[in-house]
């Protein structure tokens, strides 16, 4: 039973790490998107600023929201493949 208990503790530890990362990434995504919406709603003239011919700040930030979404999912999947899966695999082998 004691090995079961310590296995559960290890599982909980890795689950907490996953939850912390997932939570932080979720908050980053929420902040990014609603920050963009807030600029659109309350600072439209700032977004009209031209950075280059054809490129307004608004269009750049809009495209960046999509790029941020990509980067965050990539980050999470890379972490999960490199850290989370091996840890879970170890627990699963120990359990069976």
């Amino acid at each position: 039973m004691s090995s079961d208990a310590s296995s559960l503790e290890r599982l909980r530890a890795i689950a907490r790490r996953r939850w912390r990362l997932a939570g932080a990434l979720t908050i980053t995504m929420v902040t990014t998107y609603f920050g963009f919406l807030a600029l659109v709603a309350w600072a439209p003239s700032t977004l009209a600023t031209r950075l280059a011919p054809g490129l307004s700040l608004g269009i750049l930030l809009g495209a960046l929201v999509i790029v941020v979404a990509w980067l965050l999912t990539w980050w999470y999947v890379r972490w999960a493949n490199a850290v989370y899966d091996p840890a879970i695999d170890a627990e699963r082998r120990g359990a069976s």
């Binding site: 997932a22 990434l25 979720t26 977004l47 608004g58 269009i59 809009g62 929201v65 999912t73 999470y76």
Partner: peptide, 20 residues
């Protein structure tokens, strides 16, 4: 530009699906 708000809005739910 206003149309782009929808383009971004429809995507941002996906990271949430992944993380949570």
């Amino acid at each position: 530009f206003d149309g782009l708000l929808y383009s971004t809005g429809w995507l941002v739910g996906w990271p949430v699906v992944l993380f949570l």
